[in-house]
Amino acid sequence: MNSQAMSANNPSDLPVVSDRLAKNAMRNVSERLIEALLLGAAAVSVLTTVGIVYVLVSESIHFFQQVSIVDFLTDTQWTPLFDDAHFGIMVLVSGTVVSSLVALSVAIPMGTIIAIYLSEFANSKVREIAKPILELLGGIPTIVFGYFALLVVTPVLQVILPELPGFSLLSAGLVMGIMIVPYIASLSEDAMRAVPMSLREGAYAMGSTRLYTALHVVVPAAFSGLAASYILAISRAVGETMILAVAAGMQPNLTWNPMEPAATITSYIVQVALGDLPHGSIGYLTIFAAGLTLLLITLVFNILGQWLRAKFRENY
């Protein structure tokens, strides 16, 4: 200790200081390097988006060199692999729209009711049991739901609706709705719990019942969050693949009737991928054009969701 204090006063020991400076400099370099590496990892997500857009757009350009956009949007047949090839995407879009509507008509009421119940009515014990159940339901693989739709739900529905075919948009859509419920319930519940207690207390003080408070105070206050959860649900429904591929049949069918089988954008992609189409052929290119359509649909809903959130956001 003593000798160290003495040597610190000795000018000949100055290199020790520069050693330390050199070490500091080294440390700065490695700090910078690490920061750059971490930034690189964060940039992978941006690269993913760029990659998705690049692949879909570049392959779709090849597709639209052979098929006119007008035909693509207006033709009422989708037979890309036949000799008499038609490329009317509306055929696939109709399947997607119908199955999504069926799913949402199950998921939005059920999810909202569960969310209101959990946030406004349930005690903490019920909530602690219910939330993991919902989470498990949301974690079930979609292929298992597909199996469920085809081999459990369809036979049950056929008892009530004898004319229902073995494959139908209805049973696939219903099961899809059940699958989406947890997303709506948990996001909506978060939104409603973020509404400050003072608003509820004000309503209770005026003599409102719990239900009246929930429906007329909490739900309007949390509307932007609810809307965001519905939008996410729409994206899920439009992008869902395996339930439809298994339970809705894969024949292209321009229909608005949920009792019929029909292909959707997603199940068409699966069907083509299962076959053995040569790289670069027109059949191969169709799945990218279909994928681009799908991405644009989800993008529109995403933008709509962000707009709704911004417009109806309540600040407390």
Binding site: S45, T48, T49, G51, I52, Y54, V55, L56, S58, E59, L232, S235, V238, G239, E240, T241, T266, I269, V270, A273, I287, F288, G291, L294, L295, T298, N302
Partner: peptide
């Protein structure tokens, strides 16, 4: 936004 992209689109990305 990536969290809302349908999983099958990742499949197309990977295919390309």
């Amino acid at each position: 936004n990536l969290a809302a992209v349908p999983s099958i689109v990742y499949g197309l990305l990977a295919l390309g």
